[in-house]
Each structure stands twice: as C-alpha cells, then as structure tokens.
Design a protein around this nucleic acid. Structure first.
Length: 630
DNA sequence: ACTCCTCCTG
DNA sequence: CAGGAGGAGT
C-alpha cells in the first residue's frame, strides 16, 4: 500500500505554512494596524473579511488606474476612496501613526527653518504616511517630486506582491493531491489549515495595503512609476531630482518602516509556526498510541498457540486494552480508515500484554511501547509534519516501509502471519539502531529490541531512517543493546550455549524461532571473532619463534586478552572470570599445536579445536538469570 | 525437514 | 553483526 500520498499532502501543507506563506519584502508601514491587534482577531475571521471588503474596494480603484498610469485625476479619486475607507479604522492607528517615526527620524531638520522646497517634500511624505494610517483629513497634494529610492521601493513592493501571489498559488495547487487526506482531516489538520488561511488572509491584506501604498506613491509621483515600469519616457522625464534631504528623509522612513514591518511579519510567522508545532507535539504521543496497538496485536499473533489456555481471559483484557489504545486514534481517523487499522480491528485479540509478558518488570504505561513498524494507521498529517520538521521536506517518508512485504496489508492472510515468520525474514536488526535506551512497557522481547527490529525492510531504508530519527532509534533499540551486552558477557562463561541455557538466562525474552536463532547467531559471531583472534595470535607466536607451547600464556595483560575484552566487555565494567583466561590459553595452545603440526592444510582442521573448546564451557552465574541484569 | 554449525561477505 | 551458502547431525 502506498503510503506516500499523505506525504505530499503534508509536504505542501507544511511548506505553505513554513515557507511559502512567509511574506517576503513588504512595505513596512502597516505593522501595527496590520499585524499586532488584528492577529488575535484573525481567529474569528470576520475582521479579516471586513478589512478585505475595504481593501478590495480600494483595489478596484487601483486596478482601474492600471497601477502605473500617471493619471492624477484617477489617483486623486482613489486617494479619496482610500480616505473614506480607511477613516473607519481604529483610531489607535492615528496615535501610533508612522508619521511619528518620520518626525523623529528627521528631527534634526525640525530645529532649523527649512527651505520651501524641503518643507514641501516633507509635507508630502507626511501626507503619504497619514493616508497610509487612515487619517481622513490629512491628505494634501505634494508637488509631485519623488526620490529614486521611493520608486525603487514601489517596484520592489510590486515585485514582492507578484512573488507572493506566485508562491501562494503553489501550495494551494499542491493541496489537491492530498484532498483524500483532507477528507479524513482531523481537528489538527483543520487547525493547520486555518492557520494557513489566516496567513493567506494576512498576506492578502498586506498586498492590498501595499498596493494602496503604491497608489499613493503613484499619484504623488507618477513619473517614477512610469519610468520604472516602462523605462524612461520622454513625456514623463524626471523633473525634480531628489535632494539630499529628501533622500535622507525617505531613507529614514524606509528603514524604520522596513524594520517595523519585517519584525511584525516575523512575529506573525513565529506565532503561526508555534501553533502548528505545538499541535504536532501533541500528536506525537497520539502517534505512539496509534502505533502501539498494531504492534501488540502482531506480537500476540505469534503467541496464540503457546498461550492458548489463557485465551479467553486474555482476550477480554486484550479487547479492552486494544479498544483503549485505539479509541482516540480511531475517533480521529475513522474516516480515513484503511486496511492498516482494520488490521488491528479485525484481528481477534488473543491475549493481553501482561499474559504475553509474565516476566514484565517495567511498570511503564502501555503508550510508551517502543516504536513499532506500525501497521500503518493512516499517516496523520502531524506524523508527516513531524517527519518534515525532523528531516525536511525531501526526506523519504513516502517509501517508509512500515511493514515487511510479506505483511502487505492487501493480503488478508497477513493478519495471521506469526511474528516468527516476520522475524525470520528479518534483515534489519537491533544493532542498527541508536544508542539510547528507552523504557518499554513490554518486558518481553516479543516487542522489544530483540524482536522489533526484525522486520524486513527494503534496501536499508529503515536503517538510514532510524539513523536519522532519534525517536525511532529510541524506541526500537530498547533491549537489544542490553541483551547483546549480556550475551557477550555470558560468552566469558559459555562459548556454546544451548537453547535451553539461553532461555534460562534471558527470562525476559519471549523466545520463538527467530529470537532463538538470533541469540545463537550472536554466539556464533562471538565464536567467530574468538577463533579468529586465537588463530591470529597463535600464528603470531609461531612467527615470533615460540617453540614451546608452554611459553604461550594468556593473562590479563596479554594482547590477546585485551582484544577479546575489548570485544566482549568494551566498557570494561565486568570482571572477566579467570576460567575464561584458562580457556583462552587452551584454545591458543590448540591453535598453536595445530598450526605447528601443519594441520591447517586440512580444510576442516579447526573442527578438532572446536570440539575441544566446546567442552570447556562453565556455569554461568545465577545473576545472569535475572531479567534486570545489566 | 529441521536445527545448528562454520565460513564468507558486506 | 547480519545474511546467506553449504554441510553435518538428528
């Protein structure tokens, strides 16, 4: 089953929330009335529509003027509309009008009488600001002189507008493929969507005001607009070159407004992002619960036969547990329920967790169960958002093989596949995952590190995924490391442990074929390293000219011992029994003798040595039997 | 047929 | 350390 679809949805959603919706270069004069107070009001949406109605009204006038047209009459008309529409705004706007900034920004000029043309310029700029702020009676017409920087501002703002429009279109378009997910959307998704809408609304408002701002500029100095838009026009040659004073004034205004507005935009985006992120965090725990259920069911499936006597009783408890686990998730995902969750629902719960894990000693809540290769409850948007937040939009989430191919949800039989069967095909093992331990509610290996990782994944994707995913590593690695460490320490006592010995000394492990084979394989690997070292040091001794086998000893200072200790007792926190040194010395002697006798020419010359060594196993201390060992 | 082992490879 | 091939033992 393709899991990639929700990825796209979230991708677009996230992208639009985090990137595309971020306003870029914006005229910085709308901050307070655009972003501070209205931000809270956006939640109900009505204010937005009111503002939009006004600004749309204005925009019509702007459009009629063709934006770049130097028609003073039209400009004046639109300007009047601006006044009338804006005049209804909150009076606080006036109190904190950006014109205040202008006054302070050019304060040095106020100390001296200004020449007439400078005063005119100043009045013009202040008028612009008043118009922007919505002062109904402050409008005055300047002399039409403009500064180059102002024109550049306008052009940049227009480009910014167009850029925003382009960017806005993209996520909206991309939402289409995810419409199936939207059908299933839960409250989080709606919330995210709302936020996105709000951001879009703010952007629209911003554009409206930007255009209005530009409109004011254009009516103030149409020549610049025309020149900037269509190149120099002989008819609209620049008449008044900007003076230094004008430049400075405009620069002050420009900088102040830029700072203000960019800060406002940043705040706005932070708020939106925070909101989205918080909802994502909430869903992580939710995801855990969702994932845990299938895991339990799957692992229980493997236990059906062995735990048949407890079946009915266990089923009751399991049912309640399962429903408890599923409740919240199903409530939210019932609409997008696919076979994934039906895998959970359909499957008759056979037994309960505690009956599977009679030796469980960790009283952790069920929802802390380790990461499961969830049998894919439909990917919640927050799951994907979480993914995106962690790995970025290009990470390979869609191909996350949440289940082994043999467990393909399209196969009804997959439900009855035992965990053993899954594990037997395992390719990914615990060793691949993280370095963190995480408490597990499942004391038995049936669901912890020894078994959990034993899910076949394609081409190491899971491994790389897990390596990048601390959350996953945290969960699926539990148990594996401690069990592995324990096995290594046991190797100091026994090189050839029987299955029974292993079962005895891993009481917290619910053994099945897979687990048994795994442990046996571990010891096989231990032996392999052990014998390789033996052969290596035996040959080394021969090469060094050792003639008497009695000259070869293994002590704690020996290179050989250090190598072995490094391998089986890396942390060096375990006192290696003397008997192991003796066995190691015997083994070394065996190899020395065999090689000296050139028995190594025989392809099976090591077998005799193995036969000797396998008889040298000693008792494993009782402490190893406790599941909490290590 | 199944398990367990070694050996080899990655 | 895992996976697989191949062999030996049951």
């Amino acid at each position: 089953m393709n899991l990639s679809l929700p990825d796209q949805t979230m991708h677009s959603s996230s992208e639009s929330c985090l990137e595309d919706d971020k306003p870029e270069v914006i005229l910085p004069c709308f901050r307070r009335n655009m972003y501070e107070e209205p931000l809270a009001a956006y939640s109900n949406g009505s204010i937005i529509s009111q503002l939009l109605r006004k600004t749309i009204h204005n925009k019509r006038a702007i459009d009629d003027n063709h934006f770049y047209l130097s028609n003073s009459v039209a400009a004046a008309d639109s300007g009047q509309e601006d006044q009338s529409s804006i005049s209804s705004k909150d009076s606080t706007v006036e109190a904190i009008s950006p014109s205040d900034h202008v006054s302070t920004g050019v304060s040095p000029e106020e100390d001296h009488p200004l020449p007439d043309h400078l005063q005119a310029k100043r009045a013009r700029v202040e008028n612009i600001i008043r118009v922007m702020a919505g002062s109904p009676n402050s409008r005055q017409h300047g002399d039409g002189e403009r500064c180059d920087t102002d024109a550049r501002e306008m052009r940049e703002a227009r480009e910014s507008c167009r850029e925003n429009k382009r960017k806005q279109r993209l996520p909206q378009h991309q939402e289409k493929p995810g419409s199936s997910c939207n059908d299933n959307c839960n409250t989080k998704e709606e919330e995210c969507h709302k936020l996105k809408e709000q951001l879009h609304s703010m952007q629209r408002l911003l554009r409206q005001l930007q255009e209005k701002f530009l409109q004011v500029y254009s009516q103030e100095d149409p020549e610049f607009v025309v020149r900037e838009a269509a190149g120099a026009d002989s008819e609209h040659d620049i008449i008044g070159k900007s003076t230094d004073a004008c430049y400075i004034k405009s620069q002050n205004l420009q900088e102040t407004l830029k700072q203000e507005l960019s800060k406002a935009v940043n705040d706005c985006i932070d708020k939106v992002f925070k909101k989205v992120s918080s909802s994502t965090d909430m869903d992580i725990s939710h995801q855990q619960r969702v994932c845990s259920t299938p895991e339990i069911q799957i692992s229980l499936g493997a236990d059906r036969k062995s735990l048949a006597p407890d079946h009915s009783q266990a089923e009751e408890i399991s049912k309640s547990r399962s429903s408890e686990l599923c409740e919240s998730s199903e409530a939210q995902t019932s609409q997008d329920q696919t076979e994934a969750l039906s895998l959970v629902v359909r499957k008759p719960p056979v037994t309960q967790v505690s009956s599977v894990t009679p030796t469980v000693k960790r009283p952790y809540p069920v929802h802390q169960t380790p990461f499961q290769f969830s049998y894919a409850p439909p990917l919640h948007e927050s799951h994907i958002l979480e993914h995106l937040l962690k790995y970025g939009p290009h990470s390979n989430f869609g191909t996350l093989p949440c289940m082994p191919p043999s467990m393909d949800r399209t196969s009804p039989d997959s439900v009855d596949l035992s965990w053993d069967a899954v594990a037997m095909r395992s390719k990914v093992t615990s060793s691949h995952f993280g370095h963190h331990h995480r408490p597990s509610s499942m004391g038995a290996v049936g669901v912890d590190g020894l078994c959990l990782p034993h899910v076949k994944m394609e081409s190491g994707e899971l491994q790389s995924l897990a390596e990048r995913n601390p959350y996953m590593s945290l969960n699926i690695s539990f148990g594996s490391r401690s069990h592995l460490k324990k096995a290594k320490l046991m190797f100091f006592y026994t090189r050839y442990p029987s299955s029974n010995v292993l079962k005895t000394f891993f009481p917290d492990v619910k053994f099945n074929r897979c687990i048994t084979s795994q442990l046996i394989k571990w010891f096989s690997n231990f032996r392999e390293f052990y014998y390789i070292q033996m052969e290596k040091f035996a040959r080394q001794a021969i090469a060094e000219g050792v003639h008497d086998v009695k000259d070869i000893t293994v002590s704690r200072d020996s290179e050989l011992f250090r190598a072995l200790n490094m391998h089986y007792n890396k942390a060096n926190d375990f006192h290696v029994p003397d008997r192991f040194l003796e066995v190691a010395e015997i083994t070394l002697h065996e190899f020395y003798n065999a090689i000296s006798a050139t028995k190594d020419s025989d392809s099976s010359w090591k077998k005799a040595i193995y036969k000797v060594i396998c008889k040298l196993d000693s008792e494993i201390p009782e402490e190893f039997k406790t599941s909490s060992y290590l």
